[in-house]
Design a binder for these strands. Structure first.
Lengths: 190, 190
DNA sequence: TTTCGACCAATATTGTATTTTGGTCGAAAT
DNA sequence: ATTTCGACCAAAATACAATATTGGTCGAAA
């Protein structure tokens, strides 16, 4: 049981490397096998098909992002700082994870199905993380409005904004000043 | 001088109809000419090339959206209502103007250049409109923060959010509740 | 339990013939 | 002088067939 996991992991590592380098579509099972030092047919002993490999890589990346973001957020004292850090770190790490980035925009149309599941789960985790920050801000009485509005709806709105921004700011330039301004708007209101 | 403008307009009308129906790329100059009841080569008497036709159509649509949005916004009394109306109307009309919508996402990569100009100008007009609302809200003392922050930066941030939302909400479902929540966030803060 | 070569159907790629398209020009019509 | 259009061309898009890759299976070997 231990050995199988090790090799699975090495295959995933190989796949992730190649996905980053050439993109999902241009990476073949043969490529992955070669990078992992295996025969192509051996991969099918560890993963059902290419989609399964993709799902595993995407899941691992999503979990990695969530973990890093939570670590960074935890270091900050105020809810406002936490929210700011959350957005920045999430941006940076999402961009770094090209696979997810590709998924988030164009290439997803070419590879739907399984990835929808991964992304939905990822967004759910994101909402949880934001909710935590909001609850923290409420406890500290840093945020005024949250008593009146549902905390879950609010974090959903914030994640929606973020998701949209990530998609479009990937295309355009990532204007740091604009992001700061948006955070200020969110936390202080007009 | 009058007749030339009339025919120009009829060509643009034909072009717009076909752009909506078949998309920019699938609409040929021959199609437009036929729809306008002219010979293809006649179009070149009125417009330099296909790009010029496209630019004129896009500009007209942008101006139309701005006009409608301003009309709707003017009817509202409070700055908050104005802002809400602005977002809703802008969403609705942008979606209705499929040409601009196509431009806003995928197809723009296939038709850059001239359209970049039109869109930039359109965004500038949008920012102006939002700025007006913000100034109005400041005068009524409806918005607190605006003294401290630059009003131009703030409206730029709002337009950025809106633009992102439009792009991504076009793809996903346009959850009205989410938009309401976002507006609440913007106007009240956390 | 794990690996892999041989093999296959389906997909993707490539090279080429053919058509379509954007755009020009000069002659005719108004 | 203004406006229209058919004939024409080079470049781009399309269609199609030949070819090569790719994802995936299977049974035999390690």
């Amino acid at each position: 049981m231990k050995k199988k996991d090790m090799i699975s992991a090495s295959i995933l590592a190989a796949a992730e490397t190649l996905f980053q380098k050439w993109g999902i579509r241009k990476t073949t099972m043969e490529d992955i096998a070669q990078e992992a030092g295996k025969a192509k047919s051996s991969l099918y002993y560890y993963f059902k098909d290419k989609e399964a490999v993709l799902e595993a890589v995407a899941t691992a990346q999503a979990e990695r992002i969530i973990r890093i973001v939570r670590e960074e957020v935890e270091k900050k004292k105020t809810a406002r700082e936490k929210l700011l850090t959350y957005v920045y770190t999430s941006f940076r790490e999402t961009r770094r994870a090209i696979t997810l980035y590709e998924i988030a925009r164009g290439e997803m149309r070419a590879t739907p199905g399984v990835l929808r599941k991964v992304i939905d789960k990822y967004h759910a985790l994101e909402e949880e993380a934001v909710e935590e920050i909001l609850r923290f801000g409420k406890k500290r009485k840093e945020f005024r409005i949250i008593g009146r509005h549902d905390i879950s709806d609010t974090s959903q709105a914030i994640v929606t904004i973020m998701r949209s921004l990530i998609i479009s700011l990937f295309i355009e330039s990532d204007d740091k000043k604009t992001i700061d301004q948006i955070i200020a708007l969110l936390s202080e209101g007009l």
